[in-house]
Design a binder for these strands. Structure first.
Lengths: 230, 230
DNA sequence: CGGGGGTTTGAGTCCGTTCAAAATACGTGG
DNA sequence: CCACGTATTTTGAACGGACTCAAACCCCCG
């Protein structure tokens, strides 16, 4: 569950320094770690919980551009681009982060060239994810995008239920970490459409929803939904 | 027009080495510099011309995720993520690039820590652009997205026509570097919709199209179109 | 002049949106 | 523990922007 942290490449000394200077912060569900438009004050490593990156335009439209999970790092784009935060970070669950101030990070980087490569890899993967989103949002219908989302959430929030294994089909239960509105913003659609899609998936026996609990009787069936357009 | 190259931070020695080892390549319009799915063989610096990054899914749907212009660098995402190319690079105009092989780049980076920071900044800006695209594609109608595109293209391809300045409104002419199909892929829509939008903009006196030549009688008017949704 | 690709236009359809209302879940205080 | 007010979710009906399919058009080139 925990990804490898970028900071494993630090020297002993800096590791210790980091442990001394950094400070942990706790956030309740629904809190804002930083706001779009604010000046970047460093980066945040997520120890536990899930954070949503929300981007809003001047007309008030917004999308969730990405979900950030425990073990990942927040704010590195703004730090390296030397721009203000271009999105807000909102906690979807209770979250523990550790904040590494701008100044300290400058120091660490200057002493540990390896660190750059870690961040480069990280951002490169983020960039790929973002471009993938551009493609899927425009080339797949909402239903298939929803299937995609459920599959990716199941990797983190899913508990595979061993009871129903006889038929050879993987049963799975997962607790969604967000409400319908946020799902809509993640799927680039409206809450009403999310609700309709959910009930359609239920009717077709692909996923049974009850509040934020989703039951997937046959995981392979869900995967075939994720293909989408013929 | 020419952006600052990442390689300005190299030491004298490496600058020279780079000039010896790198080799220039010429491509005609419509050529493919690399294909999605191929192994990353280094990066490409664009000396002149414009390149389109096209991402395609298993069903054959595709989008132009980004335009890359002279002075920018191609393939750095794949290089640092250590993955295959996740998109194809297609020239929209005749293009001159210089190819820096994987091996050489490894060397340069190990000797020039400053180089990492250059790339980090570059990718960070790309990531921001991609997320911006996610937002605009879903929150703005095609007409406003088209206005956005024309505005950004006018910065590179536009010639401001000084004749009509009396009225205080900037007139502008620009030669589009792509056909309607590619515009459609850039705007995440279909060629037919592009054609319809073009004729609508013409009817409303915002932009006059004639083939690939677009005439903008009043640049401010075009900008107000880019706001879009009420 | 006769293809042939790219572009434009037309008509009909569909997916997703909008607006509106009903149903359900939720927290709070009595 | 229940009643109430509020927020979230679901459902319904109607609309609309963009898509699909298809035909006409245009322009360049052989």
């Amino acid at each position: 569950m925990m990804e490898t942290s970028e900071f494993q490449v630090l020297g002993k000394e800096d590791q210790e320094k980091l442990n001394q200077v950094k400070h942990s912060l706790e956030f309740n569900k629904g809190a804002v770690i930083f706001h779009q438009g604010e000046e970047c004050d460093g980066i945040y490593c997520i120890r536990s919980g899930t954070v949503a990156l929300r981007k809003t335009d001047e007309n008030g439209n917004s999308v969730l551009v990405s979900l950030i999970h425990a073990g990942q790092t927040l704010g590195i784009r703004s730090y390296f681009a030397k721009t203000d935060y271009q999105a807000s970070a909102e906690t979807l669950t209770p979250v523990t982060v550790c904040h590494i101030p701008h100044r300290l990070l400058d120091e660490l980087i200057s002493r540990n060239p390896q660190l750059d490569l870690q961040f480069l890899r990280h951002i490169s993967l983020d960039l790929d994810e973002a471009r993938e989103t551009i493609l899927t949002n425009t080339s797949m219908p909402v239903r298939a995008r929803m299937a995609h989302l459920l599959i990716s959430l199941s990797e983190r929030y899913g508990k595979s239920d061993e009871n129903g294994e006889e038929g050879g089909c993987h049963k799975m239960v997962l607790e969604l970490p967000m409400n319908r509105h946020d799902m809509a913003e993640l799927l680039a659609t409206r809450p009403e459409t999310v609700a309709r899609t959910i009930s359609a998936l239920g009717r077709d026996g692909v996923v049974q929803f009850s509040g934020r609990t989703a039951t997937i009787p046959d995981f392979d069936l869900l995967c075939s939904e994720a293909e989408g357009s013929p």
